[in-house]
Nucleic acid binder design. Structure first.
Length: 271
DNA sequence: AAATTCGCCAACCGCGAACCA
DNA sequence: GTGGTTCGCGGTTGGCGAATT
């Protein structure tokens, strides 16, 4: 139990990875595959702990990592999923092919969380929005978390979302949706405008309808399974297939698949 | 031009769950 | 059944660079 003793830092490199280290790790995993993280550094000749290797691989070196800006579609889905799942970044990342939990977490902490918290003006178009965005108090580079966006533990993911809800969504009648599936709304500057879904539907869609809508602390909680254990994905990237119904497996690949799934009248099999 | 501020993001830390002998 | 080890997750930190003053 507890912290891994295999990550003692004596003689190990810390901090940013060098190009050489990246190459070594990538070559090793390409040749021998993932897993056995604790032994990889030794076998590959890296002066890193296994955790560090795993993190580097998952967050940066994997070939299927999608780098670059979070699209509007992705942002919408992140916000929506966060509303449902809370800070379960790995679960959210599992629905965003090529995105890592770390990336989504960072994104949320910097941009999406602020928007949800009541500044709907989009800051995401430019890296700098100092004149309009919510300014934090001075951010000294030292220990202490006062400079963190005030959303990690205080956030009310199931309530604060309202400020971001498009007007059109607020009037959606869940009954009508149940009967006919989600109404395909006009694009509203978004390819996936029909992500304006009832939360219950989205949970169904995600195969997460065994999740409480809201726990005592405002976060959704995954209910225990038959074995009394909480079901979790084994990896950050597209690995939570166990949470998906078979008919949804085909939707895992990307947003376009999801969109076409929603448009294709296949909802009946879900709802 | 220099100093300051602050956003972004990679990486680390600590914990709990899962696994295994 | 128990204890040690490994894995995976979420929270947090700190460096860097761009924007602002």
């Amino acid at each position: 139990m507890g912290r891994s003793p295999s990550c003692s830092s004596e003689g190990l490199n810390k901090g940013a990875w060098t190009e050489m280290e990246d190459r070594i790790l990538k070559n090793y995993i390409t040749a021998y595959g993932e897993g056995k993280w604790s032994t990889i550094p030794k076998k590959a000749g890296l002066k890193r702990c296994g955790k560090s290797c795993r993190l580097r691989w998952l967050n940066y070196l994997r070939p299927d990592i999608k780098r670059g800006n979070i699209s509007k579609d992705e942002e919408e889905l992140i916000i929506r999923l966060h509303k449902l799942l809370g800070n379960r970044w790995s679960l959210i990342a599992g629905r965003l092919p090529g995105r890592t939990d770390n990336e989504i977490k960072n994104y949320w902490n910097t941009i999406a969380g602020k928007r949800v918290q009541g500044n709907p003006s989009s800051p995401s178009t430019s890296r700098r929005t100092s004149s309009s965005g919510p300014k934090h108090t001075k951010r000294p580079h030292k220990k202490g978390s006062a400079n963190q966006p005030e959303m990690t533990t205080d956030v009310q993911p199931c309530n604060t979302i309202e400020s971001l809800e498009p007007e059109s969504e607020k009037g959606i009648d869940p009954q009508a949706m149940d009967a006919n599936g989600p109404q395909s709304t006009v694009d509203r500057d978004c390819e996936l405008g029909d992500f304006e879904l009832d939360d219950g539907f989205l949970l169904d869609f995600l195969g997460l309808n065994n999740i409480d809508q809201e726990g005592d602390n405002g976060y959704s909680e995954i209910r225990e399974g038959d074995n009394g254990k909480i079901s979790r994905p084994s990896s950050s990237l597209n690995s939570d297939d166990a949470l998906m119904s078979p008919e949804l497996m085909l939707c895992e690949s990307d947003f376009q698949s999801i969109a076409s799934f929603l448009e294709g009248g296949e909802l009946d099999s879900v709802a």
